[in-house]
């Protein structure tokens, strides 16, 4: 990815194509649709709408990554090059996790009535993949942001030392309540699927605790990037950098929100369709906007290195 960034386009295009085919081939069975109280026509309308939105999201994500990698290749031998490299790797992991887990969910996620064992395996796999990518991705982003902020004379505000751990703790508490506080996490409720298919102690030790670490790293990284972009005392460079740091912040925050919602994944179908769709569209648009801002900022920074 780092040597030839344009290879990202065909890879993302292939994943997107697989996702679209999977959603159209593996439409929920009639019994599942009846359980969800959705007509077949409505199901197709929702599927096609989300296929289009996901295609847009992953295209923008790929474009943003390519711009970021291209910028990194321009400055890779400089002081800020290493920080940008780790940011890029972390964002790449987060971007590519989305289509992979979506493909698996599209194929196996709706088989909870006809083939429950396949659904449970897919749910467990997706949950652990999400955790691993969150820990690895946010760690890389955090590491990159630390390298960048250390280039400035900015020292962390007291808020970082006390406030961010508390915020991460609050998010983890909310996640814990959503994940295991209301049942339906190990044994699927009637006409639905479980959120984890795992016992509570295993969810806490192998999913919630790693998420706590990942989200703390993510929140710290967002703060560090903001501090770095404000710490550079130069107008043109700072303006371009702020676009990139805002974009990374949006991607990070919306990824955390997605993970929080995923804690109730199995029971989301009990919500009314309209708010569910609205939430999905809003999150997809937010993450797309984040990657779009990253692309815009990276392009402006690259221009400074080329003129």
């Amino acid at each position: 990815m780092l040597r030839n960034p344009k290879r990202l386009y065909p890879v993302m295009a292939a994943l997107t194509a697989c996702y679209v085919v999977a959603t159209l081939l593996f439409v929920p069975s009639t019994s599942t649709l009846n359980a969800l109280n959705i007509s077949r026509d409505k199901a197709y309308a929702i599927i096609i709408t989300f296929d289009l939105l996901m295609t847009i999201l992953w295209s923008v994500a790929a474009y943003g990554l390519v711009q970021l990698v291209t910028y990194w290749r321009t400055i890779r031998h400089t002081k800020d090059g290493e920080g940008i490299k780790y940011l890029t790797l972390g964002l790449g992991l987060i971007a590519f996790r989305m289509p992979i887990t979506s493909i698996i969910a599209a194929i196996f996620g709706n088989m909870f009535i006809t083939h429950p064992s396949l659904t449970s395996t897919a749910v467990i796999f997706n949950n652990y993949l999400s955790v691993i990518v969150a820990v690895a991705g946010f760690s890389l982003i955090g590491f990159g942001s630390e390298k960048l902020v250390n280039l400035t004379s900015k020292r962390p505000h007291k808020f970082v030392t006390f406030g961010l751990p508390l915020l991460a703790l609050a998010l983890v508490t909310a996640y814990t309540f959503m994940a295991i506080g209301r049942g339906g996490y190990q044994v699927p409720p009637p006409k639905s699927r479980a959120s984890f298919y795992l016992p509570g102690w295993l969810i806490v030790s192998t999913i919630i605790v790693p998420y706590a670490y990942a989200w703390y790293r993510a929140l710290t990284a967002t703060y560090n990037l903001r501090a770095y972009s404000l710490g550079v005392k130069c107008v043109v460079y700072r303006e371009s950098l702020q676009w990139m740091s805002r974009g990374i912040g949006m991607v990070v925050v919306n990824s955390i929100i997605l993970q929080l919602i995923g804690a109730r994944g199995g029971q989301l179908n009990k919500l009314r369709l309209a708010p569910l769709l609205f939430m999905g569209v809003f999150l997809i648009c937010s993450i797309s906007a984040g990657y779009g801002m990253i692309a815009y900022g990276a392009k402006k920074l690259k221009r400074i290195e080329e003129v």
Binding site: I75, T78, K79, L151, V232, K233, C234, V235, Y237, I304
Partner: peptide
């Protein structure tokens, strides 16, 4: 003042 870390390059 304008380009910060990129000025020398």
């Amino acid at each position: 003042e304008l380009l910060g870390p990129a000025s020398q390059r």
